[in-house]
């Protein structure tokens, strides 16, 4: 079985077509940024993109992926971090960090389809991602910052709540 992940084709020879993409990523491909939280589409920790649409990888059997392209948290950044990732650092969003790959994938997908989301749109897009540590207010602030950035405004014009000295705005990978 061939699966395209982060722009690279992976041969998953002999893999069980029932295997959820989540476990294939983690155990077969070695991309463990995508997390297991519930296995029943409740928490969003396993969020990845299938052709730019955020999905719960714990619910996506390998056999159903076909020729759609998978993007995981490891594939989100190019040469520099995605603005959502940058904003996540600038706002010091994470506590334990376990939910954050899923949060970031949901947020980046939202901004891709709606670069200037309203509060309601943010709530709607992020309601499927649980943060047990309760970082929600920082998640909202980070999305707003990333949105501003994506619309071409300077990162620093919007202000953020962590020391700028800790963050040069261009974290290279």
């Amino acid at each position: 079985m061939q699966v395209s992940i982060n722009g690279k084709s992976h041969e998953l020879a002999g893999a069980d077509p029932d295997m959820p993409l989540l476990w294939a990523l983690r155990d077969l491909v070695g991309l463990v940024g995508t997390k297991y939280g519930c296995g029943v589409a409740q928490c969003g920790a396993c969020t990845v993109w299938l052709d730019d649409v955020p999905i719960r990888s714990c619910q996506m059997p390998l056999g159903a992926i076909k020729d759609r392209a998978v993007t995981t948290i490891e594939g989100l950044a190019g040469d520099i971090l995605h603005p959502v990732q940058e904003a996540w650092i600038a706002h010091d969003v994470a506590q334990c960090g376990y939910c954050q790959a899923g949060q970031i994938m949901s947020a980046a997908a939202l901004l891709k389809s709606n670069p200037n989301p309203s509060s309601e749109a943010i709530e709607g897009a992020m309601a499927g991602n649980i943060c047990r540590c309760g970082t929600y207010s920082r998640i909202v602030a980070a999305i707003q910052t990333a949105s501003t950035r994506l619309q071409g405004l300077s990162f620093y014009e919007v202000g953020h709540d962590t020391t700028e000295s800790q963050f040069d705005g261009k974290v290279s990978v």
Binding site: L31, V32, G33, T34, T72, I73, E74, A77, L81, Q85, W88, I89, D92, V93, A94, G97, Q100, A101, I104, V171, V173
Partner: peptide
């Protein structure tokens, strides 16, 4: 750990 977390390390 922020930098590792956002990269899914």
């Amino acid at each position: 750990a922020a930098s590792d977390i956002v990269r899914g390390r």
